[in-house]
Lab assay of single mutants.
Amino acid sequence: GTEIELESKNGQREHYTATSEDEARKIIEKAVRRGIKRIELRGASEQLIRDMQEIAKQIGLQYRTDGSL
């Protein structure tokens, strides 16, 4: 699965493990709508990382991946 670590603007951290790319995408989209400061992805697919970079650029988000592409 993909591990997703979120940090909201007030510094609250949340951790999710998505079993599918679809689920990961839903978690990320929800977080973005809620207003999130930072997202870290571990074990994400190349496609998901590309999507994440696109989203991050659009809304000026900090993100990090573990680089295991």
Rank of each mutant, 00 (worst) to 15 (best):
I4A: 00
E40L: 15
G11A: 04
E40C: 15
G1V: 14
L6N: 01
S8L: 15
D51R: 11
Q62D: 15
S45W: 03
A18L: 08
D22E: 12
S68R: 03
E21Q: 06
R42F: 10
A18I: 10
L48D: 01
S20P: 02
L69K: 04
I39Q: 00
D51L: 14
E21G: 04
I49C: 09
E5Y: 14
T17S: 11
Q47D: 08
K26D: 11
R34Y: 05
L48R: 00
I36R: 01
S20R: 04
D66I: 05
E7G: 03
I59V: 14
E40S: 14
R50F: 09
E7R: 07
L69D: 07
E23I: 05
Y63A: 13
R50G: 04
K9F: 14
T17C: 13
Q62E: 15
R38K: 08
T65P: 14
G60Y: 08
I27P: 00
T19G: 10
E40R: 15
I27Y: 11
M52W: 03
H15Q: 08
L69V: 10
K37W: 12
T19D: 09
G67V: 08
R42L: 05
E40P: 00
M52N: 00
R42H: 06
G35L: 04
V32A: 07
H15L: 15
E23F: 05
E7M: 09
G60I: 07
E46K: 09
R38V: 06
T2D: 01
Y16T: 01
Q62G: 04
G43I: 01
A31N: 03
K30P: 01
S45Q: 02
E21Y: 14
K9P: 10
L61Q: 03
Q47C: 08
A44S: 02
L41R: 00
L61I: 11
I49G: 02
G35S: 04
K30Q: 13
G11F: 02
Q47G: 10
R25L: 10
A56P: 01
Q58M: 09
H15N: 09
G11V: 01
I55H: 03
L6S: 01
I39E: 00
Q62V: 14
D51Y: 15
A56R: 03
E21M: 06
V32F: 15
Y16L: 05
R13W: 11
Q58P: 02
I39L: 12
I39A: 01
G11S: 03
K30N: 13
A24W: 03
M52C: 07
R42P: 01
E7S: 05
S45N: 04
L69R: 02
R42D: 02
Q12D: 12
K57F: 08
I28R: 00
I36W: 03
M52E: 00
T17Q: 05
A18R: 03
R34T: 10
Y63P: 08
D66W: 02
S68M: 07
E5I: 14
Q12L: 11
G43Y: 08
N10R: 05
S8Y: 15
K30G: 11
D66A: 04
A18D: 06
L69H: 04
I36L: 11
D66V: 07
Y63G: 08
R25G: 01
A44H: 02
I39T: 00
L48E: 00
I36H: 01
G11E: 02
M52F: 07
E54F: 10
Q12M: 09
S20T: 12
S45I: 03
I36N: 01
L61F: 12
K26S: 12
I49M: 09
E7L: 14
R42V: 06
A31C: 06
E3P: 02
L61E: 04
G1T: 13
L48A: 01
E5W: 14
A56T: 04
S8V: 09
A31P: 00
I4D: 01
I55K: 03
G35C: 10
L41M: 08
E54R: 10
L61K: 04
E29S: 09
S8P: 04
G67K: 04
K57H: 11
K37I: 13
D22G: 07
I55L: 14
A44G: 05
G43E: 02
Q12I: 09
I55Q: 02
R50H: 08
R38P: 00
M52Q: 00
L6F: 10
K37E: 06
G1P: 12
T2A: 06
L48H: 01
L6P: 01
I28T: 01
I59G: 12
G35R: 04
R33K: 11
G11P: 01
E23H: 06
E7H: 10
D51I: 14
E46P: 10
L69W: 15
Q62L: 14
I36K: 01
R64H: 15
N10T: 12
E54P: 02
K9T: 13
I59N: 15
R33L: 14
H15A: 07
V32C: 09
I39Y: 02
S68L: 09
K30T: 11
D22F: 10
I55E: 01
R13G: 02
T19Y: 13
I55N: 01
I28H: 00
S20D: 09
K57R: 14
I4Q: 01
E14A: 09
L6A: 02
R50A: 07
I55P: 00
K37Y: 10
G43P: 08
I4R: 01
E46H: 10
A56Y: 06
K9H: 12
L41K: 00
E54T: 10
R42M: 05
E54Y: 08
R33D: 04
I27K: 01
S20M: 02
R34C: 13
R33P: 03
S45M: 02
R25M: 07
A31Q: 03
A56C: 11
A56M: 05
L41E: 00
I4S: 01
S8N: 13
Q12C: 14
G11M: 02
L41Q: 00
K57C: 09
S20Q: 03
T2Y: 12
T17F: 11
R64L: 15
G11K: 02
N10E: 11
T65M: 05
I28D: 00
R64W: 15
